[in-house]
Write a protein that binds this DNA or RNA. Structure first.
Lengths: 214, 214
DNA sequence: GCGCCCATCCGGAGGAACCTTGATCGGACC
DNA sequence: GGTCCGATCAAGGTTCCTCCGGATGGGCGC
């Protein structure tokens, strides 16, 4: 336990940084702190820490911006651990896509956070228990559709028509895009409405919106 | 400056509480801390602090829930200062409605926070500069409409029709609700589409959704 | 092979809903 | 009295949606 990795803290709130620093104690060496995207990139490239503890939301951008900026500046060996109050899927995905090696929420204890920093410094990936399953799901499933059983009622062609229908395109426009006759579009549309048990395209739009298809 | 009000901290993140406590130093007396709604209400009623520093978002509810719970339990003289990373209008309104005497974001400095706590203890209302103007606006303006210049193009009757149209109601249904002829509805609808420069009701729906009218 | 089901494609007929255009009436304003 | 505008309604064309028909081609079981 004598190994103390070098760390830079990035968070726009002084109090959060003070709290993190206090809780980490002497288990890490804090080289510097930063409060916005530009400062963070500059000081990270200058000091080359082993790990960057990074808030997801910053006033001048996102944590992902910091990661991409550092990567562009040549800091390829620096590892990032996202530290956020948010466990919103979009936030997690964005920062992981950018290259973070871990994501923990601020509800973690100081000891656990220090453990996480050390493990990330050693090359591990660290996720809060609540997020681990989600991250696995999001990246193992290459299919963007979360397999909706009601969608299986529709044939592939009907699903294409359904998407355009829900977006408000006219039959004529759908026919032009799919290079088929208007009559064919009408047939597909009628089948879609019947299979999904909605009575017109307005209800279909709401149906699709609820499932985030549009 | 020898006056040090009694304070209870409510926040679900240990590190944030540690940071706040460290920054406040000896300018306040911290009686206790709590991490969720139930604990907070209990300990606040038990210890009766002068001020409660309250996070807006808690795992078991909201900061507003804590305030209403304490009020229901008889803690009428206790003053609340909301402390949050969020400056979302809904969050601010909810906690102020519940009875908070101030709202500051966590980007505040430790000294300023201590000042804010003292001022709230003395009966003042304290808001971060960025929020002060907003709070005034939100409560002085009794009109719920944020005065959209494009909406002024529509006559009152046309606005009624527009709302129903954007929600997907059929002409027949709109006519029944407004007790006018279908033909009249059609004319109003046509005027609405022309004035807002959209070509059909689907585009109107998106127009209204963007302005949060629906 | 042959029948069968189904997805995809296309057409006609018809009613409902949508949207445009033109018209009347009454109140406000000059 | 003339003009403008909002509210009302009607005529008529366009689009939407359903119901009917038919054609083709692929998969599947007998």
């Amino acid at each position: 336990m004598t190994y103390a990795p070098t760390v830079i803290l990035v968070d726009d709130h002084d109090m959060v940084r003070a709290g993190v620093a206090a809780q980490l104690g002497d288990r890490v060496q804090i080289l510097a702190e930063a409060g916005d995207v530009g400062d963070a990139i500059e000081v990270i490239l200058d000091r080359s820490p082993e790990v960057v503890l990074l808030d997801v939301h910053l006033p001048s951008g996102s944590g992902a911006d910091v990661i991409t900026g550092v990567r562009a500046g040549g800091g390829d060996e620096i590892r990032f651990l996202a530290l956020s109050v948010s466990d919103a899927p979009d936030d997690v995905i964005a920062v992981i896509r950018a290259g973070a090696r871990g994501y923990v929420t601020k509800s973690i204890s100081g000891d656990d956070l220090a453990d996480a920093v050390v493990r990330v410094a050693e090359g591990d990936a660290v996720f809060s228990p609540r997020l681990a399953g989600f991250v696995i799901d999001a990246f193992s499933a290459t299919l963007p559709t979360p397999e909706d059983p009601e969608l299986d009622l529709l044939s592939p062609r009907e699903q294409e028509v359904m998407r355009l229908l829900a977006r408000g395109y006219a039959y004529k426009e759908i026919a032009r895009r799919l290079t088929i006759s208007i009559k064919t579009v009408e047939t597909h549309a009628s089948n879609v409405l019947r299979k999904l048990q909605v009575s017109n395209r307005h209800e279909l739009t709401r149906w699709a919106a609820k499932r985030r298809i549009v």
